[in-house]
Amino acid sequence: MYFMINLLGVFVVMAIIFLCSPNKKEVKWRPILVLFGVELLMTWFMLETKVGGFIINKIASFFTWLTLCASQGIAFAFPSVMKQPQIDFFFSALLPIIFVVTFFDILSYFGILPWIIDKVGWLISKVSRLPKLESFFSIQMMFLGNTEALAVIRNQLLTLNDRRLLTFGIMSMSSVSGSILGAYLSMVPPTYVFCAIPLNCLNALIIANVLNPVHINKEDDIIYNPAKKDKNDFFSTISNSMLVGMNMVIVILAMVIGYVALTASLNGFFGLFAEGLTIQKIFSYMFSPFAFLLGLNGHDTMYVAQLMGIKLATNEFIAMMDLKSHLTILNRHTIAVATVFLTSFANFSTIGMIYGTYNSIFQKDPEKAVVIGKNVWKLLVSGMAVSLLSAMLVGLFVW
């Protein structure tokens, strides 16, 4: 029964997105069905085959190795802390980001990461027959994060109309940056994190092409190739990367502390009106219908709904920290769908980041950035829909 509910959830989410689309007649279903087929095959390969499991384990081992390398640097600065049997979140999950950001920038410096993005983006465009720029962008944001990926294509964004600009805003809600994967892996099972990443990439394309379908002429379906500029020297590049990584750590830490404190204050406020009433309970009721469609039992439905609300209102880090403390008492299916749902940047603060990035890019034409402010609801709906679809697809294979 729960399997059928999980399967029904996929159709319900797509139906809701289709109803929200203002241009229903323009939706092209063939590429969407092709992408769904690719997703099912990919998910089956990752979760049901020995080769897929082997690949995921090797990728997870690679990121574990990156984290261990980062730990050597942290231990040099904080030797007494790293000797403790239990290490605080700041040291175990956040500080390793400094090294991971630097490592990914080294891959970019030598052209390795751009080459991977180019080849995978080309393959997705060929298979789905969706626009090249959108296909490449879905891969870029998977590795780089939303604001970084938007910055990479900023010169081409300047030439696009409002409809296509909105498409990139919608897709940006479902990104995840490779630089913080180590932090995720310290809290939730790696297998489901690495399943979520490619599924989010493809589902972002699907949802964007239903919620905001755009017709593009063949002559306009091009990728902007910026002129080659002189690179900074290698050591200047990696030094700057380390500073960027440290800034990212500070921002995430501030958000975690601030949102946890804000949640505590809200719970205290709600407690004045009803004993035991918390923001988590309110969220659990609000999102319970969607959690139910993940094929969960009654108790797990309410808990995962609570995680959904926490992620949307705050961020995925806080929700993952909560999930980590419940891993030993939840069943395999619940852990899988919850982890996949949480593995993305879909929340209110991400909208602010996207809007700020657009403002920065369109300084000479600020009216262009207004397209994000006018369509906040589309960004929120798309972010939730992508996370739900990815979780439902993984849920079909994990029981």
Rank of each mutant, 00 (worst) to 15 (best):
L8G: 02
L8A: 14
G9H: 05
F11M: 08
S21Q: 00
K24G: 05
E26V: 00
W29C: 00
R30A: 12
I32W: 00
L33M: 12
F36R: 00
E39Y: 09
V51Q: 00
G52A: 09
W65G: 14
A70Q: 13
I74L: 09
F89K: 02
P96T: 03
I97W: 07
I98F: 07
V101R: 05
V101C: 10
L113A: 11
I124W: 08
S128F: 12
L130D: 07
P131T: 06
L133V: 07
N146E: 15
R164M: 09
S172C: 04
S175Q: 13
S179N: 12
I180C: 11
L181W: 00
A183V: 01
A183R: 00
L185T: 12
L185D: 13
P190D: 11
P198W: 05
N200I: 06
L202C: 11
N203V: 08
N212W: 08
H215Y: 10
K218Q: 09
K218H: 10
N225K: 12
P226H: 06
D230H: 09
S236T: 10
N247D: 12
M255Q: 13
V260H: 07
V260M: 11
N267M: 03
G271P: 03
I279H: 04
K281A: 09
S284Y: 02
F287H: 05
F290A: 14
G295M: 01
L296M: 06
H299A: 15
H299I: 14
T301N: 14
K311N: 12
T314L: 13
N315F: 11
A319C: 06
K324V: 00
H326C: 08
L327T: 07
R332T: 13
H333W: 08
L342T: 09
T350M: 14
G356Y: 09
T357C: 14
Y358E: 07
F362G: 01
E367W: 04
I372E: 10
K374M: 14
K378R: 13
L380T: 10
L380E: 10
S382P: 02
S382A: 15
M384D: 09
L388Y: 01
A391K: 04
M392P: 04
V398L: 01
V398P: 03
